[in-house]
Design a protein around this nucleic acid. Structure first.
Lengths: 231, 231
DNA sequence: CGCCGCCTTGACTCCCTTCAATGCGAGTGG
DNA sequence: CCACTCGCATTGAAGGGAGTCAAGGCGGCG
């Protein structure tokens, strides 16, 4: 699966070249400040997007104000497709972001017209679907500790460039609230869980947003269910 | 969204015609008894499937035996696509089933070669993705009562043919365990929740698998969060 | 310095799980 | 026909894990 994520849209060199080729001047660039929304649930879905730099989150809000963060996106990720004519989620910049915007109609036509693009796009969607289902398992069937451990491991996998991922330092772009909303937990539970992992010396926290995985094996064991409780 | 589900693969007349056209004799039919598996997580993914009759479930199993049912499929639904060469889920017949099998390679080629098929297939995948995310919200952010109510409403929507859905009788193909594994709950909680809905006269249960929605408005209110607790 | 947003920690509550027993309908064989 | 069994569904009691409410702590910035 890791390999697959490096194909498709998530390693978008070839894909983007073909797209820009097919769509030319209609592609434009937008800059967003942290906290700014790119689109809001319900509004007309006129563009598909690709992140050039920065980190964004895509989420839904319930009537009672609870949020569920569907996915975090980083440089190279494409998103904003919808089978509906309206956006079904809200996309918001976590850090300052630069985003490439593809007019949706043209984007879809360009993709449909090219078998190679189609195949690539299909693969991306299937990967997203698979990830969404993994998250369903995580939220539906794992303890808070397992969820947080899995989240950290996933983060380590996705942080490219480091050779020894388990010794690398990570910087969390997202807040505790974002993590909580992503994992189906409360902010307090996320905090307590991180504190417990710190106590067990499985992670080291240089600051609230910077940490290191000190004991990868233990973190994996916790993610699988070993000693996965807070007290 | 209802309308969209009636296009794409979920109303597969045109789609299937084009597919069979392109793939001809390589399509075959399988019959499954209740409880039989069509494919198992990890095995080679050689086919995509379309249900002719019956109900199936697609699920994942965790190390500790917990299951998460990703989706239920009924006549007309297509499934079994995977971006990997292996199956990522297990598919099992709930009732006796008849299934049409499309060789995966040929299926993907046929789809990629036709812009119309591509567009239709993309739409299906996006719909699935959207549903998966809705379920994430449900599992991550709703009470047991809300989840069950939402599940029943969704079931009512999908039961086609009835004019007055809120007065129609439903037959549940799946067991309480299946429902629990779908909603991220235990079988006991599902039972208690149904009992409570029965007590409140929101639903009527003719038998364990047959019931009627007696008070659609209240069920919707419960799904939205009103009086969504067991005691 | 003091405000403000984010993070952390504590105490208590409660919804859901866990464990355990019972009910119930269908199929089977004596 | 009835006794028996087996899987599924239901109900009860008890406990725990995460939520809720509330009070600081910490760092950045005007």
């Amino acid at each position: 699966m890791d390999k697959l994520e490096r194909n498709g849209l998530d390693a978008p060199m070839i894909f983007r070249a073909a797209l820009v080729d097919g769509m030319g001047a209609s592609v434009c660039i937008r800059h967003l400040k942290a906290g700014e929304t790119l689109y809001v649930e319900g509004e007309s879905a006129d563009y598909c997007y690709e992140i050039v730099s920065g980190v964004m989150k895509e989420y839904n809000t319930l009537e009672d104000g609870k949020r569920q963060v569907a996915e975090f996106y980083k440089a190279g990720d494409m998103f904003g497709f919808s089978e509906s004519d309206d956006q079904l989620h809200t996309a918001e910049a976590i850090t300052g972001c630069t985003v490439r915007c593809y007019p949706r109609e043209a984007f879809m036509k360009t993709v449909a017209a090219s078998p190679a693009l189609s195949a690539s796009f299909l693969e991306t969607l299937m990967t997203r679907l698979h990830r969404a289902r993994e998250r369903m398992v995580m939220i539906g069937r794992m303890s808070a500790m397992q969820r947080v451990a899995t989240f950290l491991l996933r983060l380590a996998d996705n942080t490219d460039g480091e050779d020894d991922a388990h010794l690398a330092q990570f910087h969390l772009a997202m807040s505790r609230q974002d993590i909580a909303d992503h994992l189906g937990l409360t902010i307090e539970t996320v905090c307590r869980t991180l504190t417990e992992l710190k106590k067990r010396q499985i992670i080291v926290m240089e600051s609230a947003r910077v940490f290191t995985i000190a004991d990868l094996a233990s973190l994996e064991a916790v993610a699988m269910g070993a000693r996965s409780r807070l007290h």
